[in-house]
Amino acid sequence: MTSLGIDHHVSAEFAPETTFLNTAVRGLLPRRAAEAVQALTAELVSGGRSGSGDFATVDRARASFARLVGVDPSRVATGGSVAVHVGLIAASLPAGAEVLFPEGDFSSLINPFVLRGDLKPRFAPLDELADAIRPKTALVAFSTVQSADGRTADCAAIREAAAAHGARTLADTTQSAGWQPLDAGAYDYSVTGAFKWLLCPRGTSFLTVGEAAQESLAPLHGGWLAAADAWNSTYGPIGEVVADARRFDEPPAFLAHHGAAAALSLIEEIGVDAIHRHDLALAARYRAGLAGLGHAPVPGASPIVSVPGLADREPELARAGVVVAARAGHLRATFHLYNTEADVDRLLDVLAG
């Protein structure tokens, strides 16, 4: 993937009317994605034959995501939410299985396991997660980048320790896919909410399943789409189940996935490496400015920068047209491809009063 220049794409695709520094909540929708959704909506209104949506477009989104995270499309299932993907994995575990999580990770990754009621959840500090894996651990589930404060997991150490103890790994890449180079194939499972750094409409998510792990999952919500011959399996029990990860697809929300196929093409055109450099440079500028104001953010190296004790400044910033978030007692700002140094400086100016 070769970058054609971030500035060129930003001017063509985005027109924010605020200083938008809130991608960890939702990404801005590129113009091309909005146009794709509008085109399908027009078909739905007019009664055109293609108004139901296009499975080939869903597959384009699948393939684009697969390229971005370094796996074959046959290992990718499409869906609408991380919690549903995680629920499928939670349903596959035997009663009494131990699942290890970082303390304070995002609820959608944790609750499907906890709410089963017959598993054994255990928690450890993020920086001690690899050391907390033990022979009884069946699964380690963690976000590669923490939503609350942007801390990054030591993914290599976690994978190594999990392999040593025979535990499987589930990586939530919702806060990293789109800005951080990833190899989803290094994990047994990965889940990604694509409406943040991947700039897709909400209602788009992806599950990757390793070949060995695939046999442990049942296609509980596949419906007729789980069939090898889907169009001849629309009534009654399906016959042969499709051999790859499509068996785990949720029925597609076509409006979301039509927008996703367009949005993901933009990420591919720019290139994750270029976005990575851009986003981290803006975060470094903000961290330096915070130090000059006497504020100490949570240490880290991601475009999510959280400052303890400043959450109460969020309403003031909103009134000034600076969109950030208050999370876990922190003021959280996030920097992505459509942000500039001027956005960073505007945030710092308001914080300086």
Rank of each mutant, 00 (worst) to 15 (best):
T2S: 13
V344G: 02
F335V: 10
F142Q: 03
I158W: 04
A320I: 08
E250G: 05
R134C: 12
A227P: 01
A212H: 11
P299T: 06
G271T: 06
P30L: 00
T334E: 02
C200N: 08
E215N: 14
P121W: 00
V82P: 05
D154P: 04
K196D: 12
A130E: 05
Y189M: 09
C200Y: 00
Y286I: 01
P102T: 07
R62S: 09
S74C: 15
P181M: 06
L129F: 09
L331V: 02
A156L: 09
G300N: 00
A352K: 10
I275E: 07
D229W: 13
S50K: 12
M1I: 01
A228Y: 12
L68Y: 03
E35D: 08
F248W: 11
L139E: 05
H258A: 06
A311T: 00
F55R: 03
S205C: 09
A83V: 08
I110A: 09
A288G: 07
D249H: 12
G53L: 01
L170K: 03
I6K: 04
E128Q: 15
L29T: 02
D349E: 14
W197K: 01
A164S: 11
L225I: 06
V140P: 02
A163G: 15
D183V: 13
S81D: 15
A91N: 15
S3D: 12
D72K: 07
S176K: 03
D244Y: 03
D279R: 04
A256Q: 03
L170M: 11
S46K: 13
L280S: 08
C200S: 11
A141T: 08
G51Y: 00
S306Y: 04
P181S: 09
L217T: 00
V350Y: 00
L68Q: 01
R346N: 05
H8N: 12
A171M: 04
R26C: 13
H165V: 05
P73R: 14
N111Y: 15
A284Y: 03
L93N: 06
A194K: 00
T208P: 10
L351E: 04
M1E: 05
D118A: 09
T334V: 11
P251A: 09
S74N: 10
V84R: 06
G321D: 01
A148F: 00
G96V: 05
K196M: 08
T18K: 09
F123E: 05
L119W: 07
A97V: 11
L317P: 00
